[in-house]
Each structure stands twice: as C-alpha cells, then as structure tokens.
Write a protein that binds this DNA or RNA. Structure first.
Lengths: 167, 167
DNA sequence: AGTTTAAGTCAGCTTTGTTGACATTCCAAG
DNA sequence: CTTGGAATGTCAACAAAGCTGACTTAAACT
C-alpha cells in the first residue's frame, strides 16, 4: 500500500491509498450531482445527456461541422447522428450544407434551441456557482488545476482552446 | 473577461458565465479522462462501468448488503442485479446469506475479484496521483472542497462517511 | 395470522454507445 | 477529363445498462 512518503523539494504530497480513493469517490459522487439538474430538465423534453452535450457545444461553436463535434465529444458519428437528427427534427438545431465543401454540414442552434441551451446552462451553472461560492476562490483555482491535469492530453488541448476562447 | 477579484471578508466571487462554463467543460473532459483507463481494462474482461462501481464499493465495504449497495449506487435493483449476477457467475463476487437476518445477502470479493479491483484501482489511482502531483497540495484541497460542495446532499453524507472511514 | 421487508426474476422499454454497409462529394493522379 | 480513393454523413442492426411494473420467495416483525 503506497505510503504517501513525502519527498521531493517541490511537490511534497502525502498521497496515501485512502486519499486517492477518496478522490476517486469524490469524482463519482460529484459527477452525479453535476448532471442531476440537467437530467431532470432533459427528461421533460424527452432528451438525454447526449442531447445536452451536442446542444452545449453547438452553442459554444456555432457553425461547427459534424466532424468537429465528433472530435470534441469522442463518440462515433453514428451515435452523434441519431441525437442530431432528433434535435433537427424538433427544430432546435439547423444543419446547413457547407458552401465551400458541400460534404460538410454546419450546425447552428435555432431560437428554441438557444432557449433550451440557456435553460440547461442556467441549471448547471447554478450548482457550479453555489459550489464555487461555498468552496471559495482558492479552492476554485485548485479544482480547475486538478481537473485539467486529469484530462487526456488531447482533451486538455481542446479544453485550453475552449477555455481561453472564453475569456 | 472575468477578473477574479479577491475581495475577502467572506467569499465574494465574481463568477462570469465564461468561468462557470469553463468549469462545466472541465468537469466533462476530466471525467472522461478519469474513466478512460478503467474502461480499457474492463473491456478486456467483457465488463462495463457498472461492474467497476459494484466491485469498487464491495471492496470498500466487504459484507455490504444488496440494499446498501443500491443506496450508494443509486440504481434500481434490476439493474444492479444483472451486473451482480455476472460477477457472481464469474466467481469474482461471493454472496453469503446473512446470519442474523437470512433475507439479506452479504457481498464479498473473492481472490480473483480482489485482483480485478486492484488492477482497476491502480490504473485510476495512477492518473489521480499524477494529477495531484502536478497540481500540488493546495490545489488538491481545493479540488476536494469544490467536488464535495457539488454533490447532492445525500451523496455528500455518504461521501463523508466513506471518506472518514478511509483515514 | 397477517403484514412488511429483502432479494431476486421476468418482461419490456429507452438511451446511447458500437460496427457494418452505403451514398454523396471532393480532389488529385493519370 | 475521368476515375479512383478519401472524407463526410446517413441508415440499419446490435449491445450495455439504465428504467418501470408485476410478481415470487423467504424471513422477520407485530
């Protein structure tokens, strides 16, 4: 059992198995809380988490192509397509054939699509804001650092892209 | 955008939409990284995330009953049962009739069940340890605080239970 | 004796992932 | 110019893992 043996001049962390396991369980429980509010809203519309993710990232990058979205979401195109199809049928997403390259489809939220996105974002932001307020500014910075360090390399690059585009 | 502004007193935080959205996306990407390694291992055994969760918590609380596990995992018994049945058939989990109350089944990992758990835990811990080391001790404390604040009330109580039992 | 509780089963449905096959479009080599 | 391959997106079918509802069995409680 890895005794967290301190060490190094720099990091000097006692990381026992118990601490790591607590971190793992915290991720599990927190992620459930994180998705709970949107899930309730989505259920009212007959949507699932996959719809939420699509709507979120289309809102984030209007005009993105299906392929772009695939790379961000990390699912197969067939899986994304099903979700996209229902959103388009319901008039929440618009798919425009590319002008330069007609193979591509550019995706946009419609008026009611934006309304849905706003409703979901507000619910999720409220919980995040609450958690941030309770934990305080220093904790928030640490939270972000650890999460970023936990991503796969490719996701980290994507995240940095979105995060700085956000400022 | 979003100047973090540190007015103290309590926790005055300026939380812009961009900051909150970055937090939301960080959770999304980090959770994917968090589950990526175990997913690869599970696939080799023909298991899924549901099996991982069951094995994790049975290891955590040996002798726990089916009902306990249901409360922790937050799924229906039909759903859990399917997973549990395959784990028992494969000889990774043992189900013992309760001595005090014979209606109950107490769950334990077998030798090979513990081996699987250890393999999964090691992979997930490695990434967590790495993230913790890179982010540093203060960041880790913040990470834990924010995650705990993000859980639903009931999950938070459960987590505190597991976390302190861990120390 | 009658009710409640714990566990499990059967059936059927939904969401969201997967592969495989296929149509359309673009582009570049011949 | 044509043609063959790569890129993009769609359709079909299947699997994992959630869900609800109805029910059984055994044990415990009152």
């Amino acid at each position: 059992m890895s005794q967290g043996h301190h060490s190094r001049g720099e990091t000097l962390l006692f990381l026992t198995d118990a601490q790591l396991r607590a971190g793992i369980e915290a991720m599990f429980f927190a992620y459930r809380g994180f998705t709970a509010d949107p899930d309730r809203i989505l259920a009212r519309y007959g949507y699932g988490r996959a719809h939420h993710r699509a709507v979120h990232f289309i809102n984030r990058w209007p005009g993105t192509t299906v392929n772009n979205l695939l790379a961000i979401l990390g699912v197969t195109k067939q899986s994304l397509n099903r979700v996209l199809r229902t959103l388009i049928e319901d008039g929440r997403v618009e798919s425009r054939v590319g002008e330069r390259d007609k193979r591509e489809r550019h995706l946009y939220l419609t008026e009611i699509g934006r309304a849905l996105e706003a409703e979901l974002a507000e619910a999720q932001s409220a919980r995040m804001r609450d958690a941030f307020r309770r934990a305080g500014p220093d904790a928030v910075a640490g939270f972000r650092e650890v999460l970023e360090a936990m991503m796969e390399e490719e996701q980290r690059r994507q995240f940095r892209g979105t995060a700085e585009a956000a400022e």
